[in-house]
């Protein structure tokens, strides 16, 4: 086959423009999803089945269905109901951008909730008992002992989730958004050079992941500095 470098170079500006949308979607959804996951994870560890049941149902649904299906149901499905189109939420829901952002957030939040739940449950019993022994109340127990330890325990698994999210965000292209993948597919429609353009897009994803991993490693090292040998 004839490998066409020109197409790759010519499409780079547009692909980079698409990457910005990809980064924006991933950054915001991971940020909000991360915050929401903490209270949900605490509820998930409750011994009362009624309290832990609600977040369990939520994470079960979002972890148990493909994100593509969630995105389609949310974007195309909801819009078919008159009541949704007439509601005050329609100005938001009619935009593909917000639909993608909401679904991505709910999705990553579900996974992060389960990561955090596992991490909270892995906090050594002795640390909690020690905190209780010196009379910490529940708020302080979580704020000072359980959550800081759980964050550190969950860190490695969490970087996985963010990387999966970065790649999963390619699905935004199925609802008209011009993210990195959407831009690539639009360029392919014009040039009929899928291999070259997807190769370029793949390289950009790889680069983004690489930069993320490097940054995350520094972050992880800082968070774990108490374990460094002196």
């Amino acid at each position: 086959m004839n490998w066409n470098w020109e197409v790759i170079f010519a499409s780079l500006p547009q692909l980079l423009e698409g990457s910005l949308l990809t980064l924006e979607l991933v950054f915001i959804s991971v940020l909000i999803g991360g915050f929401l996951s903490v209270p949900l994870a605490i509820l998930r560890t409750s011994e009362n089945p009624l309290v832990s049941g609600i977040p369990l149902f939520y994470t079960f649904f979002f972890r148990g269905t493909p994100m593509l299906v969630q995105l389609f149901l949310f974007y195309y499905g909801l819009a078919q109901f008159d009541s949704v189109r007439e509601s005050f939420l329609w100005p938001l829901l009619r935009e593909a951008y917000w639909c993608a952002l909401i679904v991505f957030t709910l999705n990553t939040c579900a996974y992060t909730t389960e990561i955090m739940r596992g991490a909270i449950q892995a906090v050594p019993r002795g640390e909690i008992e020690a905190a209780q022994a010196i009379g910490m109340n529940r708020y302080h127990l979580y704020r000072r002992i359980i959550l800081p330890l759980a964050y550190r325990i969950g860190l490695p698994a969490y970087s996985n989730e963010i990387i999966l999210m970065l790649k999963g965000s390619a699905l935004a292209s199925t609802i008209t958004l011009l993210d990195l993948t959407g831009m690539a597919r639009t360029i392919i429609a014009r040039t009929y050079m899928p291999i070259e353009v997807f190769f370029a897009a793949g390289c950009i994803y790889l680069l983004l992941t690489f930069l993320f991993i490097q940054g995350y490693r520094l972050f992880e090292r800082r968070m774990m500095r108490h374990q460094k040998p002196i």
Binding site: Y76, A79, Q80, R85, R94, A96, T176
Partner: peptide, 10 residues
């Protein structure tokens, strides 16, 4: 999908 969005008014 395009028809769906025509229907929904997007």
């Amino acid at each position: 999908n395009a028809y769906l969005d025509l229907n929904s008014g997007r």
